[in-house]
Each structure stands twice: as structure tokens, then as C-alpha cells.
Write a protein that binds this DNA or RNA. Sequence first.
DNA 1: CTTAGCACTCTGCGGCGGAGAGTGCCAGCT
DNA 2: AGCTGGCACTCTCCGCCGCAGAGTGCTAAG
Lengths: 346, 346
Amino acid sequence: MAERPELAARKATVLHAVVEAYVATGEPVGSETIAERAALGVSSATIRNEMAALEEQGYLSHPHTSAGRIPTDAGYRHYVDALPAPTRLKDAQRRQIATHFADAILDLEEVLKGSVHLLSRLTQYAGLAVPPGPSDEHLVRLEVIDMGPTLLVLAVGQHGRVDKQIIDRPEHIDAEAISGAELRLDAVRGTTYLEAQAALLQMAAEEPTGAHDVLLIAADVLRMATQGGRAGHVVIGGVANLTDETQVWRRDTLRRLFETLEREQEMLRVLQEVAVSGDVSVTIGDEHPSTGEWGASIVTAPFTAGDATVGTIGIVGPTRMDYLSAMTAVRAVAKRVSDAATEAEQ
Amino acid sequence: MAERPELAARKATVLHAVVEAYVATGEPVGSETIAERAALGVSSATIRNEMAALEEQGYLSHPHTSAGRIPTDAGYRHYVDALPAPTRLKDAQRRQIATHFADAILDLEEVLKGSVHLLSRLTQYAGLAVPPGPSDEHLVRLEVIDMGPTLLVLAVGQHGRVDKQIIDRPEHIDAEAISGAELRLDAVRGTTYLEAQAALLQMAAEEPTGAHDVLLIAADVLRMATQGGRAGHVVIGGVANLTDETQVWRRDTLRRLFETLEREQEMLRVLQEVAVSGDVSVTIGDEHPSTGEWGASIVTAPFTAGDATVGTIGIVGPTRMDYLSAMTAVRAVAKRVSDAATEAEQ
DNA sequence: CTTAGCACTCTGCGGCGGAGAGTGCCAGCT
DNA sequence: AGCTGGCACTCTCCGCCGCAGAGTGCTAAG
């Protein structure tokens, strides 16, 4: 009881052996197995005692009296925290990643799509990524295009991000008003989405002609892009892998997972909540309401452009996951994606 | 044997009753059930004879000797072909559709996303749509934007379609060359992607300066947009529904279906192959290699803008599908989408 | 503190038997 | 000729039983 935070060395060894064996086989694991596997030089009876204690402390559980042990979410957590930091990738994986990033693709969105699929192939789970938001991207173009009864507002960011919106053209806005606003729209090039938005509102105030409304419309599109419902989206790939994993998922939890995967805004929120900045982060089952509901775990890593963290990439899989190789793969791919994003930055 | 094409009236009634009962319950259906259900005024023994004949002719099958009958794919086909043409929607559905289309959305892509989800909710299967390709869309904007070490080529179609591509900037193209090409790029506005492509090549030939290469690059982007690997994509929604349908899917076929759903190009091909122009079309199981492999059926309908068919919308579900309501829903939604597309056309 | 030993508990599996559903066929009726 | 009631037959499904096997928890001894 007193040893909650720190686990006696041997207990930890036993716990980790249980996690590894269970992840590998999917079967509850017994004391005998551990006695052989982890060369501790003690008998299975001793292991049994340790296991009972570990169960007492909430790291292991028992499907029924005479079955082996299964790690709890807390057990996985302890295992993950104790994992040696960076591990080498398997050569085959290393090669796959290298090949995948062999020829530079310049559109970050494309890079992420590809990377998400790569991750899903490497890990056999489903890949996820959150692309950079527009908030601190610089505008390279901002236009209002006259399409007859409608207007198309087009904003292009420095990384090739394109936000567009079609709106009904208000009666009083004529071709003249649009071309009148053109200069003003050009003036905000090179500033960020947020700065541009402020600048446009400012200009609109000083400009009481027809161009006034055009500027307001453009500002509104920028606002929608940076915070509105369509602000962010999530790139997802390899969900087919989730239907496999023989028997691991219960049908109903799987369904809930799929439902959420389709709701981008919700998914985005979840990913923001589970990601800690810095290195790879792991969220296991009950540690977050959503992953708890799915019986799943999420492994993510931030990726950077220059020094700034601009997005997140990772995977979702069952709590019974090969965390070590998942973390290694995610870390490696995040690194490569960072390189790509940094390069695109110039 | 001689009556292959035309089925005696009573046989058809029996077949259809079997299909409906099986779709409703998911259980193999026996002669007794049909005798009660379809008020034919004959005994179950007679039904049994008919059923044996229908099995002989390949419309029904038998899980094992003493079980009821299950329709074969051919059985479903006969049922579908005999379906009375347009049926009224349930009021609840009618209302859902009306609400959904209540406020006009001007971006066709958004309309399709929403419609696909609507369809998946209405039918409990997964929704699909193929948006209009660019081939005969008119350009409203074509630009080459200087982004330092890279160039961004941007093509905007009349329906708000945006094609973009980022490429490395060849050494010899300088700011002057780009601004020099600007006029030429503006000249193709209003023509279709294909026409513009031809015009650009033409102009490039007559223009041996630096602008020459810029025009070629722009033409190439249009080519990629109209036929390249990224040409089309498929909008998908409600796949969570496919994990439900208790027990209907076998785990391995479901996996294959999911895998294909992720490969847009393949999905696109399948949809092109199963869709016949005109009204709603239904492809059942073995009628197409892909649906056969999935044990699935696809129901689609084309949607139009003005008089031209511009895209396809529909659903995928298990062969044991409520075809009548699926067809009705798809037809109704396709109609509304056509209205939206036509309106966007002006 | 460790360990050997042992009783105990639970699952998983194969075999068994009966109930139930549904068929196929036959003989008789209209 | 076609329909029907009757009936034997065939399978599946389900619960039951008993057994083998795995694994535990406890105890007593080193």
C-alpha cells in the first residue's frame, strides 16, 4: 500500500513480462509462463505472490478465478512509462519509411495523407493526423471572385492550404465594389490569417463605399477558417485494420469508435486533449473518456515546422497494443513529417 | 426449365414473400410462414413445391436440409426488378430530407458530404457519392503563385471546385516570367478544363519566352486534375453502420470492404461500373466482382445539373438489404442533390 | 522470504439426447 | 392435373454432463 508510486523492482519486472506476454498472445498469462520467460530465478509460486500483490494494487486483473492475469489500463501505463526511451526501428520498417519519404512532396496535406497510411501499415492500427491550423499561417492570396449570383472567397496559405467559401452575393455588391476591394485584399498578403482578419475589419471601417461589405465578407471567411466549425479537420487512414485484430474489439465499442472517427470536430477535440507537447504521448483506455468508451489507446507525437509545433500525428488501436513498436513508429514518422513541414516552410 | 425468363405469377409471389421475410427477420424462412404471410389461399405443401422449383431455378437456397429458404443473389435481383417503380417515402424520412435541404448550401462538395450522411442515416447503410469531375466544368480562375522556392498552381472551377498543386520552381522561371504569363492564364477563364488545357499548350508554342514554361506547368496541372491519379474522389459517410447489422457480415469480408472504401481510385472505378445512367441502379452481390467479394450490394442514382448527368450518389449495404426503402431514399436524395447542383449551375 | 505441494475452482470441449423446425414425398381428393 | 393432408426424415439448436487442463491460493517447511 505504501509503495504506490514506486514499484519494487521485481514486481515491475513481473508486471512488464505479463504485459508483453499478453500483448503477444492475447491470452491471460499464468505464473508459470512468467517464471520461465522473465529469467528471475524464482519459482512460479513466488511469481504468484507478486501477481496477487500487483492485482491488489490495481495493475493486473483476473477474468475468473482460475485464469491467468491480464493487465489493467494502469498496468499498461506503468509498462509504457518504464519503456526505455528511443528504440531502433526494425530494418524492414526503417526501409519502408525511407522509401516513403524518398521523394519530397510539397503539399503538406498530401504528406499527411501518405504518412497516416504509412503508420497504419507499420503498426496495423489506424493512423490519424491533425494538420496545421491556419491561425499562424501566412496568407499568400486572398480573393473575392465574382461568379454571377454567388461570390467565391478564396484564401491561400503559405503551405498550400486553401480555404474557400461560396456565398450568395448580396444585391448591393456590384462588380465595381469587388474590384474596388481588390487592392485592399492584396494589402494583407504576407500577414497571418489572424492579423489579416483584424486588418480587414479596420480597413472596412475606414471605407464606407461598396467595398466595405466585400472586406467584411472576406474577414468573415478568415474567421470561419480559423475558428468556425470547419476550422480543423483530421486525416484518417487504415481503419480497415481496426476490423481485424481478431476478437479484441467488442462489436459495440468498435461501432462507437467508428462513429467518432467520422465526427471530425469531436475527433479533433479528443486529439487535442490527449496530446501533450514534447515527445510521444500515450493515452490508455480509461485515462480519457473517449478512449475508455472505445477500449482503445491513442499514441501521438507532435510535428514541427522550424521550432513551432504545428500538428499532431499518431495512431489508435486496442488497449492491448504493442506500445513499444507503436511509439517507435509514431516517433520516427513524426520526425520525417517535421522535416517535410520545415522544408515547406522554406 | 422453359420458363427461365418469365416466372409464373405465383412463383414470383412466393419468391418475393421469401425475400421480404428474410430481409425483415434475417432467419431462413419456411413454407408455413409464407403460406400465412402471402395470402395465396394455398397450403404450405404447395408453397413447398414452389420453393423447391425456385431453388431448382437458382432463386433460393438452402443452408441445410431442414432449414428454411434464403434468397440467392439472383433471387434478390428478381425481387428488385419486379419492384413497383416509385414509392412514397415514410413521412418521417420525407421530413428528414426536407429539413436537411432546407437551407441551400452553395458548395456542391458540402452538399454531397451532407447528403451522404443523410443517406446513411435514412438507410442504416453507408453512403457514397462521386462529385462531378472537372472535365466539363468551366474555369473561373487559373493562377500561378510565386511562393519563393516553390510555385502554387491554382485552378478554380465554376462550382467552387479548387485544384491546387505545389511544385518546385524551376531555376529559370523568375517573377517576370510569372507575371508575363498572367494575361495568358486570364485568357482561358470561362472555358472548360479541357479547352483551357489545349489553349495553353497552343499559346505556349507561340511564346518562346520564360512565360512559355509557366503555361506548360499550368496546362499540366489541368491535365492532372482531369485525368491523373488525383482526378476523382469519392465521398463516403456512415461507415459505422456497416459494423452493426448484427452478424450479417463476416469479419473477413467486412475488412475487404473497408480496405476498398479507402482506396478512392478503386472505389471510383467500381462505382462507374455499377452505375447505369437513367434512374436508380442496383448491383447485387455476385453481379459485380467487388460486391461479390464483399457480400454486399450497391444502390446508386445519378444526379444531374441542368440536363447533364454530373455525378452519382448512393449506398452500400449487405445483400440482405431493404432494397425498396434503400432505392426510395437514394432516388429522393439524388433528386434533391440534382436540384442543388442545377441551382449552383445558375 | 522462498518454495514445493496440493486442494480447489473455473473454463472449454466433446458427446448425448430431446425438442423443434422444416423439408420431401406420397397417396388421395377435387 | 393440381392441390393438400399426413408423415417420416433430417438437421440444427440447446442444455446437460463429465472430464481434462490450466491456474490459483494457501499452507507448511526450508
